[in-house]
């Protein structure tokens, strides 16, 4: 009996130590709030989806980057563009498998075109898309297509200096 209680307690603690929060954002205002809310820090925003092979390829590199730099005024914002129908069956299991234990976002934008133009006038909508914001909240570098840990790290280091 004592062992059973200990096991249940352990499972309970494990489930709470893994906090996977996914917030839905639907508008430019909400996107702005996410980025502006981290002013004073370097923010990397990555638009991705589980069905996008280049996105999936670079995803672990970004998670590693977050873990290496999370104590250094760095914030990683994942925004998934998965279909609503895939939210429970694909998105959440993927995030869990990748060890995303920080807040990430599900983009269900009412006006995707306006959002794209707000983020970056030259962005036509292809993913993966990565934007780097400096500590003043200004977009200072963008990547289109999948990149390596070293490429992401180089930009983050520049902005942290």
């Amino acid at each position: 009996m004592k062992n059973t209680v200990s096991l249940i307690t352990l499972l309970f603690l494990i489930s709470f130590s893994y906090s996977q929060e996914v917030k839905t954002i639907t508008s430019i205002d909400e996107y702005k709030a996410v980025v502006d809310g981290s002013k004073g820090k370097v923010v990397l925003v990555n638009f991705w989806a589980t069905w996008c092979p280049p996105c999936v390829k670079e995803f672990p590199e970004l998670v590693k980057l977050y873990k290496d730099y999370k104590d250094k005024e760095f914030v990683l914002v994942f925004i998934s563009l998965d279909d609503k129908a895939d939210y429970d069956s694909k998105l959440l299991p993927f995030l869990k498998k990748q060890g995303v234990d920080f807040t990430s976002y599900f983009g269900n934008f009412s006006n995707p075109e306006a959002l794209m133009t707000y983020v970056d006038k030259s962005w036509q909508g292809e993913i993966p898309y990565t934007g780097f914001y400096d500590k003043e909240g200004k977009l200072s570098k963008t990547f289109m297509g999948n990149k390596t840990y070293e490429q992401f790290e180089t930009e983050v280091k520049k902005l942290l200096d």
């Binding site: 280049p54 075109e113 962005w123 909508g125 292809e126 297509g145």
Partner: peptide
Amino acid sequence: ETKSFGCGIKR
């Protein structure tokens, strides 16, 4: 001119 989300062309 319009925009939409889409898959990046694999070059």
